[in-house]
Amino acid sequence: MAWNEPGGGNSNNQDPWGGRRGGDRKGPPDLDEAFRKLQESLNGLFGGGKRRGDEQRSGSGGGLSLLVIGLGLLAAIWLYSAIYVVDEQEQAVVLRFGKYYKTVGPGLNFYFPPIDKKYQENVTRERAYSKQGQMLTEDENIIEVPLTVQYKISNLQDFVLNVDQPELSLQQATDSAVRHVVGSTAMDQVLTQGRELMASEVKERLQSFMDTYRTGITVTQVNLQSAAAPREVQEAFDDVIRAREDEQREKNLAETYANGVVPEARGQAQRLLEDASGYRDEVVARAQGEADRFSKLLTEYHKAPEVTRERLYLETMQEMMNNTSKVLVTSDKGQNNLLYLPLDKMIDSRGASGSAAPSASAGAVGGSDLGTRISADLQQRDLRSRETR
């Protein structure tokens, strides 16, 4: 039997919670009473007066108050979501009814959701992503090329509105640009000193793609890391690299040798040129001096022919006698001439060089015999002259 049915077994008229009606209750509080107290407090807050005994008006006033509370909460939530702050490094694009409305700079801003929709991004931060893949070079070799692309957002409006996923488009454009550049470059250039030029070409081509798509992205740097061959052919590539290093080492040795020999040869050639130039200047100057001397002597000869002729003869004989080892002695009275040969000086002059020692000895012997014959001839001439007298 229910606890509130007439004639129930509960003679004490108690509710199931164990408390008496009108007495102290030990169970949960009455929900109607709790709502009633909340409505009274809200009515007092908003200035609405009501009679405590009018239950119907109290119920309708309570529903209105709950509606006001709900609307207030919704307004607070909307206001909280409508106010936003843009940092110094950020920008925000606001769309109204799905159409571009404005671009907002740093500061405290306000928009009207859900009519408006905003996209807020950091436009100064450098972003980067890495990529690696196997590619075919111009000479039909497969290599793995890892690279890193650094970029930032330069136009937030284009970044938000023109492309659905601009960063994904950037990655796909990077793959296309790298494959185009690697496919037009030989393997040696990719593996060695051609990486910087390739990185510059990839950056230029990638930026061209981004500008064509109007993604609002600026590529700041492309770092093309050391390319390598696939693991299946890595040993063969290592042999090629070692051979290339040997070639470079031999070139360095050859350049070192050339740097040591070529300057020396150039110095010797320059010295020979300077000697030849000096000899030429000397010969020309001597010739000019002789010509000037002859011109002056000719002038003097026209003035005094006999004196000039005698002086020239004496100077010539003096120069000739200085270069000969033979001495001719004459007498002042017109007697017979006496030829004197200084054999000791002739022997000394011929024995000055060690290689000519045998010839000097032979010359000395020949000179002695010649002197003996000349002395005997002179004596015979002297005797004949005396007999004639």
Results as ranks from 00 to 15, higher is better:
9 G>R: 14
13 N>R: 10
21 R>N: 07
23 G>S: 04
27 G>L: 01
29 P>W: 00
31 L>N: 05
49 G>W: 04
50 K>W: 09
54 D>Q: 07
57 R>F: 10
69 I>K: 04
81 S>E: 10
83 I>K: 07
84 Y>T: 02
84 Y>P: 00
88 E>L: 12
94 V>I: 14
95 L>C: 06
112 F>L: 15
115 I>Q: 12
115 I>P: 08
117 K>P: 01
118 K>Q: 11
119 Y>C: 05
120 Q>G: 02
127 R>F: 08
129 Y>M: 11
131 K>G: 03
137 T>I: 02
138 E>V: 03
139 D>V: 07
144 E>R: 12
148 T>I: 12
154 S>E: 09
154 S>H: 02
157 Q>W: 04
157 Q>A: 10
159 F>Y: 15
163 V>P: 05
164 D>C: 01
164 D>V: 12
165 Q>P: 01
167 E>F: 02
168 L>C: 01
174 T>E: 06
177 A>E: 03
178 V>K: 03
180 H>I: 05
185 T>I: 04
187 M>D: 04
187 M>A: 14
188 D>K: 10
193 Q>F: 07
196 E>W: 09
201 E>I: 00
201 E>S: 04
204 E>L: 04
208 S>Q: 09
209 F>L: 07
209 F>T: 03
212 T>C: 01
215 T>M: 05
219 V>G: 01
220 T>N: 10
230 P>F: 02
233 V>H: 00
237 F>T: 01
242 R>P: 03
251 K>F: 09
251 K>P: 00
260 G>Y: 05
272 L>H: 08
275 D>M: 11
277 S>I: 01
278 G>T: 08
278 G>W: 04
281 D>E: 15
282 E>H: 13
282 E>Q: 13
282 E>W: 15
282 E>D: 12
292 D>Y: 06
294 F>N: 11
296 K>A: 15
299 T>L: 06
306 E>M: 04
307 V>F: 10
307 V>N: 09
313 Y>F: 09
314 L>A: 14
314 L>P: 05
315 E>Q: 13
317 M>F: 07
323 N>M: 11
326 K>A: 11
332 D>L: 15
335 Q>E: 15
338 L>V: 15
341 L>E: 05
347 I>K: 12
352 A>L: 13
359 S>L: 12
370 L>K: 05
370 L>S: 13
375 S>R: 06
377 D>N: 09
378 L>M: 09
382 D>M: 08
387 E>R: 07
